[in-house]
């Protein structure tokens, strides 16, 4: 889903092709998903492998611990589920509901 966006005029835009840092957080890519990762807090051993492997900065961490998935940005690639240690299996992929 595209974020609400006021399209600036040439006068309003900063001069040159200047864009403020980190503004992509406002752009939601969650609708790309056909499957979604589901994180199980009980099973998670906090190894952080899912977090460091995620291409979409979509593993939410707080104080150095995984606390959930950012579904605004997660594209449902499933890397987190594959990288989660086999014996732990704290992330499973489920079909996205329509």
């Amino acid at each position: 889903m595209k974020a609400e966006e006021h399209k600036l005029t040439a006068k309003e835009l900063p001069v040159g092709d200047i864009l403020e840092a980190g503004t992509a957080v406002a752009f939601k890519t969650g609708a790309w998903r056909s499957i979604r990762p589901v994180w199980n807090a009980q099973k998670c051993i906090q190894c952080m492998i899912c977090w460091i492997s995620c291409p979409d900065t979509s593993i939410i961490v707080k104080d150095g611990k995984v606390t959930g998935i950012n579904y605004d940005h997660c594209k449902g690639c499933g890397i987190c589920a594959v990288e989660c240690p086999k014996k732990v299996c704290a992330i499973t992929m489920e079909a996205e509901k329509k």
Binding site: A24, T29, M48, W51, P55, D56, T57, K65
Partner: peptide
């Protein structure tokens, strides 16, 4: 990784790389 996870993210989500692009 636990220490790293306390640092701020310098590359945000919301980019348009393909699903699963490393």
């Amino acid at each position: 990784l636990k220490e790293l996870a306390k640092r701020p993210e310098s590359f945000t989500g919301g980019h348009r790389l393909c699903t699963g692009c490393g």
